[in-house]
Structure formats: structure tokens, C-alpha cells
């Protein structure tokens, strides 16, 4: 029996301060298996992005645990990593594609330089290797090679996302986290980015968690899906089962809101 690559247990993030107490996500538990794409769907404010941010160490969770098989043989909670280990988790083992390319890219470093930064962080040293790998991944993500030395600040939104995807995949991380990767792009560009991710997934068997409010994206990419509402997982299952035989009232509502 195959072991999960990632196990998340009772992940909770509460933002509390003077006069406010906001539960972003609470008691979220799930497994991700090697080569699998797990979808997390829910409306804005459901906590789905918080889950990714906690896993990628952008946000410190209030409580809970996450075990990555390759991190201390899966016996040590990632959320208890020290600073050096945290950095190493972000640079070597996981990568994130953000909804807003400004978070994932340095817009005033060239497209090739952005991918090279990621490889450098992952301890690549030979300049020629780095340059070759960066151009390889930009080609795979269909960024025109003549734009490799241009700044992403001057790219279209769709092309910025392609550079982010190239950067996220370049050093073959174990787990790729994708947060609303097509939100804000117009539909034809969305289609191109989705085709790219689907193609890469089928060719290279990347393990990924994809967060989206768009059931169409989830249908296309995810093997299994978690449905989140108000910070909680209300339902999980095979993606076709979630879409065709939803059990929870919220999921039934969500599925019936899709216009096509």
C-alpha cells in the first residue's frame, strides 16, 4: 500500500487580537498521495488559501500538524521546523504558485532570473546548468524564449502565471501548491494555463494541491476534492462523486450554482 506524501492533521489558524477572533480554518485534516492532485474548493473566506499558506510556511498556524514523508522520515511536524528547515522546505521540497504573480515573482528580475533564483535557492551552483534549466522550463511553460531576458513586470497576466509555474517546477519539488492560479485571467488565457498544468501533470506526475473557487478548474485537474466552508472541511471525496453525488447541503448548493 502506498504511503501518503503529506499528512495534515487538525490544522487550525485563528486570527485573534483586540476585540476580534477570526477562525480562518479549523481542524482541517487530509492526506495527499504521490502523483495525486488534491483539489480544495470553497467560496472566498472559506479558509482554503489559509491551508496552503500554512503548509508553505507563509503563515504560522495556531495548532495542528503536517508531516511530509521526506522531512525527518515523516515523523516531525513541519510546523515545528526551525528557521533553516523552514527555508529548506520552501526552497527544496515544496513550491507555491500564488494567485497574484507579484507574490511569487520578483517583477524587476528577468523571467529567466526568476527561475534561476529558485534554482540557486535549491543549491544549484553552475551558471550554465542554471541557465539551461531555466530556459528548458520556460519553454515547457510556453514562455517565448526571446522573452527570457525581459522583466515579468511588462508581461501579460497569463504569461506572468506561466513564469510562476516554470519557477515552481524547475527544481522538481515533491509538492506543488497552486492557489487560484487562473483567477483574474480572461477565459481564453485561463484555458491555456489550465492546459499547461494538466499537460505537465500527466507527463511528469507532479503531486499537487490546487485551491480554487472554480469547480471547472477542480473538475479538470483534481483526482480528489475537499469542500471547505467557514473554515471547515464539510465534505471530501473523488472529484466526480463530489460533483455528481454531493452529500452536504453546501456542496449541493455549490454544484447547482454552476451555470453550465
Amino acid at each position: 500500500m502506498v504511503e501518503p506524501l503529506l499528512r495534515v492533521r487538525d490544522l487550525t489558524k485563528i486570527y485573534s487580537g483586540k476585540g476580534h477572533h477570526i477562525v480562518a480554518c479549523e481542524d482541517v485534516s487530509f492526506d495527499v498521495y504521490p502523483g495525486e492532485v488534491l483539489g480544495i474548493v470553497g467560496e472566498s473566506g472559506s479558509g482554503k488559501s489559509t491551508v496552503l499558506q500554512c503548509l508553505f510556511q507563509d503563515v504560522v498556524p495556531t495548532s495542528g500538524a503536517a508531516y511530509l514523508t521526506s522531512f525527518h522520515e515523516g515523523e516531525r511536524n513541519m510546523f515545528e521546523a526551525d528557521r533553516r528547515e523552514r527555508r529548506e522546505l520552501r526552497t527544496h521540497r515544496m513550491s507555491m504558485v500564488y494567485q497574484n504573480p507579484r507574490q511569487g515573482l520578483n517583477l524587476m528580475v528577468t523571467a529567466g532570473g526568476n527561475v534561476a533564483e529558485r534554482l540557486l535557492a535549491a543549491d544549484w551552483r553552475r551558471v550554465s546548468d542554471i541557465r539551461a534549466k531555466a530556459s528548458d522550463y520556460l519553454v515547457r511553460t510556453e514562455v517565448p524564449i526571446e522573452r527570457m531576458d525581459d522583466f515579468p513586470a511588462f508581461f501579460s497576466g497569463g504569461m506572468q502565471q506561466r513564469v510562476q509555474i516554470a519557477k515552481a517546477l524547475a527544481n522538481s519539488p515533491e509538492l506543488v501548491l497552486l492557489d487560484e492560479l487562473t483567477t483574474g485571467l480572461d477565459v481564453s488565457v485561463q484555458a491555456g494555463v489550465l492546459d499547461l498544468v494538466r499537460d505537465i501533470q500527466s507527463r511528469y506526475g507532479v503531486t499537487a494541491i490546487i485551491v480554487s473557487h472554480d469547480l471547472g478548474v477542480i473538475r479538470l485537474l483534481a483526482d480528489r476534492t475537499l469542500v471547505m466552508k467557514d473554515g471547515h472541511v464539510v465534505e471530501s471525496g473523488l472529484t466526480d462523486q463530489i460533483l455528481e453525488d454531493p452529500q452536504h447541503p453546501y456542496t449541493q448548493l455549490l454544484v447547482n450554482c454552476v451555470t453550465n
Partner: peptide, 9 residues
């Protein structure tokens, strides 16, 4: 058929 395929629970 959908129950056998697990598309339905």
C-alpha cells in the same frame, strides 16, 4: 452503474 463506479455513494 454510477454506484459501481463510485461516482455515486
Amino acid at each position: 452503474l454510477k454506484c459501481l463506479n463510485r461516482t455515486y455513494l
